[in-house]
């Protein structure tokens, strides 16, 4: 989750898009975010494109208000994907800046967890292959689709390893394109679950816990969710975490205050939102999904404060 909202950058010397490229600016911005918002961790990077960029796609780095976006997916079909040698992400300058920023933060603040954020296998794959063709090929070109996912997944495993070497305490995987709303239960079971698990298992081998975030409504993919190997599951605001917890035994839940409420609501609304979430016994309180860059800092502060007071 990108918490570098415009309000935070107004007060600091560390701003986007420059901080997407520079380790010093990036760790500085993460520091500003942590201090200003009251979140109890650092989270970097502030973008979801570095993985796809390293594997071939062009990226537009956006502005202070607009996150980086894929300019063009580099391959028209899963059949055209050019398999780069192992550890390809490491060769990307921005990826190296991210790892350096993780090192800086974890050394400077050993008591505050640093979370390394990774874009999941499906989202990364659908950011290097034309997404429409890719989604069809999940059904029509299964062998090639699996080959691409496996390749991407292995590259992500190497990248996660690098973040962990740098000092990341937790890895958080967000896989927006793997939402049940797009994939449905069948494709979620065939493609989202195994590759998310492959990645999570590899991270666990390095002794590091994993957060998995699944966007959107999950009502059609509950079965698949129960099979995920993450240590914590984070979902969007329309999902009742209380219900999810009762359905999946032993689930550690994370979430899920509406990011729309955080952007458009006021502090009182935020506080009452937190109160209702506290009633659901959520394990890790957090925004439900990616924050809009226009989210007012006072609402985020009201959120973190209410959570801390509630504890």
């Amino acid at each position: 989750m990108n918490a570098a909202v415009v309000d935070v950058m107004k007060n600091g010397a560390h701003t986007l898009p420059a901080a997407h490229h520079d380790a010093g600016l990036m760790s500085g911005l993460a520091d500003d975010v942590q201090r200003e918002t009251g979140f109890e961790n650092f989270g970097i990077p502030f973008c979801m494109t570095v993985e796809a960029e390293s594997l071939g796609s062009s990226v537009d780095y956006g502005t202070i208000k607009c996150e980086p976006k894929i300019g063009k997916e580099s391959f028209p079909s899963v059949r055209d994907v050019e398999f780069r040698p192992k550890r390809a992400i490491e060769k990307n300058k921005r990826a190296r800046a991210i790892v350096d920023a993780i090192s800086t933060l974890s050394q400077k603040y050993p008591d505050i967890p640093t979370i390394g954020a990774i874009t999941g296998p499906l989202s990364t794959s659908a950011s290097i292959v034309d997404p429409m063709t890719f989604l069809k090929e999940l059904r029509r070109g299964k062998n090639d689709a699996h080959r691409v996912l496996d390749y991407v997944c292995n590259q992500l495993i190497d990248y996660a390893g690098l973040m962990i070497e740098g000092g990341a305490d937790v890895i958080s995987i967000a896989d927006p394109t793997a939402t049940g709303e797009i994939l449905g239960p069948l494709m979620f079971g065939e493609y989202a679950v195994p590759y998310l698990n492959q990645l999570a298992d590899a991270i666990h081998k390095l002794g590091i816990p994993v957060i998995i975030h699944i966007c959107g409504n999950v009502k059609t993919v509950r079965k698949g969710l129960a099979m995920l190997h993450g240590d914590a599951l984070s979902v969007d605001a329309m999902v009742s975490l209380g219900t999810l917890k009762s359905e999946i035994s032993g689930l550690t839940t994370m979430g899920n205050l509406s990011t729309y409420m955080l952007e458009f609501g006021d502090e009182e609304k935020v506080r009452s939102g937190v109160r209702s979430l506290l009633g659901q016994n959520i394990d890790i309180m957090a925004p439900a999904c990616g924050l809009s860059t226009s989210t007012p800092i006072r609402n985020i502060r009201a959120f973190t404060l209410a959570v801390k007071e509630g504890l």
Binding site: M132, L135, K136, L138, R139, R140, E181, I182, L183, G184, M187, T220
Partner: peptide, 14 residues
């Protein structure tokens, strides 16, 4: 009705 999802709808279109 959430019987079909994006991949299915795209295949139908093809």
């Amino acid at each position: 009705e959430e019987e079909y999802f994006v991949p299915e709808l795209l295949m139908c279109a093809d």
